[in-house]
Amino acid sequence: MNLAKRRVAKLKLSLIILFFILIIWSASKQTGVSLVELFSNLSNMGALLVQMFPPDWSYFNYVTSAMLETIRMAVLGTTFGGIAAIPFALFASRNIVKTGWIAVPFRFVMNLIRTIPELLLAALFVPIFGIGFVSGIFALAVFSFGVIAKLAYESIEAIDNGPLEAMTAVGANKVQWIFLGVIPQVVAPYMSYFLYCFEINVRAATILGYVGAGGIGLYLSRTLGFLQYDRVMSIILYTFVVVLIIDGLSNRIREKLI
């Protein structure tokens, strides 16, 4: 009896392992991944790296305005998206809006928007708003909205109900109830999500230029196209430093908030 059980368990495990091997094998077959090719072409990778060094130092100066535009896009996109997220987050929270079905459409819109990656959003907005940073800002705004609204409504639903009850008891109307009972409890987590989203947006904004949505990505795609690998390296280093500084600052502030 016990032996039979153990045998079944063993069989199950080997089947699961076999299944995973099959998935990985078929996926690599379909996409044409080959370890042999990876190793036989290592020398090409080396050649590319050689071309990247030394980076074109003078190019830093040239792309600084594009880098600043990238950061501005992230700032504006996060701000617009973050502000638009506030009413949605409130309406999607079941402890704020007691009528159950009202939250459903708000959650549906939020979930729908979160399924679209920011690069796709940018590609959609470029034909609408034209090539340039405006499309990028809209793409980042919509993306930020999705992220912040979701995280904010989850933290609203987790707030302490006590102060809300106290606000009801003192005779506060619904607006006062939200501003004096709910908002003070969620300001800190909201700001933290806002900064977190800003970090993501700075990184995302660096590649939005690929689809024509402004920022430093345009220069990245251009220099790659012209095989100017020393300049590519400059852009990569520049982006690396900027992202590192912004992440560091934002993390420092977020620690203080909580």
Binding site: D160, G162, P163, E165, A166, A169, V170, L180, G181, P184, Q185, V187, A188
Partner: peptide, 13 residues
């Protein structure tokens, strides 16, 4: 009507 609760129910922050 004032109300006092077991868990004080203040906005802690």
């Amino acid at each position: 009507i004032g109300m006092i609760f077991q868990n004080f129910n203040l906005v802690k922050r």
